[in-house]
Amino acid sequence: MYKILKKEVLAPEITRFKVAAPEIAASAEPGHFIIVRVDEKAERIPLTIADYDKKEGTITIIVQAVGFSSRQICNLETGDSFLDLVGPLGKHISTEGYKKVICVAGGLGAAPLYPKAKSLAENGAEIITILGARTGELLILEEEFSALSKELYITTDDGSRGRKGFVTDALRDLLEEDSDIDLVIAIGPMVMMKFVSELTKPYGVKTMVSLNSLMVDGTGMCGGCRVTVGGETKFACVDGPAFDGHLVDFDEQLRRQRFYARYEEEAKVHGHAGGEYQCHLQQ
């Protein structure tokens, strides 16, 4: 059992948890994620390690309630525990040798982006951050990013905070102005990462994205997380989740994310009761 030491609501539907997991914290690096299960009947849910404290033996996760399982996680309280928590998983990313990096976060993407930005900054990179969200109240980690960024830009779809528009609008201006950017990291909804990658390509700026593919085990044994990168099939959980955005087949990923859409509805509607699915087995 992995105990929740602290819970904070960062924005509507977005919750931050600090969890006691000393062994995982000890091995955690930027780019890593974990998989949690709340109870015996729960799904295995992948979540990025949004921060870690090796001395304290804790990791931080930030969860957005988008469906049944993520909401179930967000309903946990300080003192509750996760039944299962496995990690660190995924390939860590190298954060050394960069001079000037633009970090682009869409909505909850700020959470997985944070440990990478922090590590880049610690290794001497100058950080420019663009935080985007649908609306102002969904912006998260503004203070944290502002503390490590030389410049911070905010965009919202509805204009309630910062510039009205998309992160790509702000990014285009920066790329036009500044030619010595050596890396763009973009994390957010799949479509956003797709458009950011398309935008940076003509500028020839290396672009890293982090894919949130559907996963089961997270250790390379199911292949459910497959993604086409540069024409080759990769497993996001072991070869990623960070990949070169210019090589990812985003359209395929967008389709794969819709695979279980029908079942998500059912899980929500049926809650814990047995549904249609079970009945046909008993016929």
């Binding site: 729960a42 295995r44 089961v216 079942y263 047995g274 549904g275 079970q278």
Partner: peptide, 18 residues
């Protein structure tokens, strides 16, 4: 098989993995 055996997808939606 993992979805069905380990995650008990055959008991979806009681078990949450489809």
């Amino acid at each position: 098989l993992t979805r069905v055996n380990l995650m008990k997808a055959y008991k979806f939606p009681e078990f949450k993995t489809p």
